[in-house]
């Protein structure tokens, strides 16, 4: 791993939460930079170029998705957003704008750290199309469009491969419905989520040992899907 500790920018207006995150992250070996407002956050992001941004969506001076868009204009650094439970739309907007993942308040530190680690891993190893996906007992070669499971070969349709590729691209983060629909079916189909549902069901049926209790193709209700490969478990 890198020798220098990762720098994490915490953008949150609540001082208690900032203190908690500072203590926790510092204890895990991260270097923490703090910002109280969105404006300050953008400035700190530009000047310090952190490895990851933790962004609270309830900031007083700006909408979360606007800040994400602001950062995404010049950087692809991983962003994890903190959201209050009730505001689904805020969360989805931030994710659609380019945030990698989200954590809902109140959260346990374990959850947060898991998300942070996923996001950092993803940033460190950009997904290549030639990657091999190991989902439990199934191994999928996205480049060659080939898959092997415990019972032998597994057939995936072209769209299913495209969906798997899209999910793989978002590995370590959550992919929103919009993102997946756009990437797999194109912008005209962003309002037809049932396509996505049906195909996800098909994928689960082919990959998951118990489709009703999935381990690799996880659903984030109301938001989207998350791919957890063997290495991510």
């Amino acid at each position: 791993m890198t020798s220098a500790p990762h720098a994490v920018l915490v953008v949150d207006d609540d001082p208690q939460l900032r203190r908690l995150l500072r203590t926790t992250l510092a204890g895990q070996g991260f270097r923490v930079i703090e910002a109280e407002t969105a404006g300050r956050g953008l400035i700190e992001a530009k000047s310090h170029k952190p490895d990851l941004v933790i962004l609270d969506l309830g900031l007083p001076d700006a909408e979360g998705h606007a800040v994400v868009r602001g950062i995404r204009e010049w950087s692809s650094m991983p962003i994890v957003v903190l959201s209050a439970r009730v505001d689904e739309q805020q969360k989805i907007a931030a994710l659609d704008a380019g945030a990698d993942d989200y954590v809902t308040k109140p959260f346990t530190v374990g959850e947060l750290l898991a998300r942070i680690r996923s996001a950092l891993r993803r940033a460190a190893q950009p997904a290549e199309s030639g990657e091999l996906l190991q989902l439990g007992a199934t191994q999928i070669d996205l480049a060659r469009r080939d898959a092997r499971g415990p019972q032998g070969e597994v057939h995936f349709t072209p769209i299913e491969y495209r969906l798997l590729a899209a999910l793989a691209r978002h590995r370590g983060a959550v992919a929103t419905q919009r993102q997946l629909l756009r990437e797999v079916w194109g912008p005209e189909h962003v309002d037809q989520p049932h396509y996505l549902r049906v195909y996800m069901k098909q994928l689960r049926a082919k990959i998951e040992p118990d489709p009703a209790q999935p381990r690799y193709l996880l659903t984030e209700i109301g938001i989207g899907y998350r791919l957890l490969a063997e290495t991510d478990q």
Binding site: R197, M200, K201, P211, A212, T219, E220, I221
Partner: peptide, 11 residues
């Protein structure tokens, strides 16, 4: 909307 039953249960 069209909700996949399986996913809801799973979640």
């Amino acid at each position: 909307e069209w909700v996949p039953l399986e996913e809801v249960v799973g979640s």
